Computed example of a mutant assay.
Amino acid sequence: MKMSTKGQYALEIVVDLALHSSPGSLESLNHIAKRRHLSEKYLERIVRALKQHGILESVRGAYGGYCLAKPPEELSVKEVLNAVEGELAPVQCLTCKSDCGISCDLCPTRETWGNMWETITDAVGNIMISDILTREKELEL
């Protein structure tokens, strides 16, 4: 399974905000884009989805910007990715009706796909944004 740039950039945005903002000190999307070398225009769409899912908060105006809606210790990678990618299922038939021509009850590979999905979901559900911050600080040393 390959993650789209939306998922990659969403994680970049959240980590950047965890490092550079707080409810009392908001960060602009322009600064995030420059620090991470990403397109500000593209980030606007991603930020909208993150706000809709309660991951980010924003304030409009001259002193406005963005911050995380909850502490990095309480925010998982899974929440971030699901906000912009939807379910992380490796095949469509695990989340909705599929027209592959094989009955789900008779599909020899469905259980394998389901096991993969469970493994992926468990892994990203157990990685918190604070874990990424710890790793980033280790790399700076």
Rank of each mutant, 00 (worst) to 15 (best):
A62F: 09
S21H: 04
M1E: 13
A89M: 00
E79L: 01
G125Y: 00
S21N: 07
V14H: 01
I127Y: 10
D105S: 07
K78N: 05
T5K: 15
Y66E: 09
C100D: 04
R60E: 14
V84E: 01
G86L: 02
E12S: 13
L56N: 06
W113H: 08
K2T: 13
G24L: 11
L11G: 00
V80L: 02
K2R: 14
L81W: 15
E111N: 10
T109N: 12
E73K: 09
L17H: 05
I13K: 00
G114Q: 08
C104P: 04
R45A: 11
A69H: 01
I46N: 06
A69D: 06
S58M: 11
A49G: 01
Y63W: 05
D122V: 12
E140I: 06
S21M: 02
V77W: 03
N30P: 00
P108E: 08
L43R: 06
G54F: 07
K97L: 10
K78F: 11
A49H: 09
L68M: 02
Q92Y: 05
M3F: 15
C104F: 04
D16L: 05
W113G: 00
L139R: 15
R110T: 03
S21I: 05
E87G: 04
V91C: 02
I55D: 05
K70E: 02
L106H: 01
D122R: 13
C104R: 07
L75G: 00
Q8G: 15
S22N: 09
D99F: 04
L29P: 00
G7S: 06
I127C: 10
K78P: 00
W117N: 12
E27W: 12
A83D: 00
Q92S: 10
Y9L: 01
H37R: 15
K2A: 06
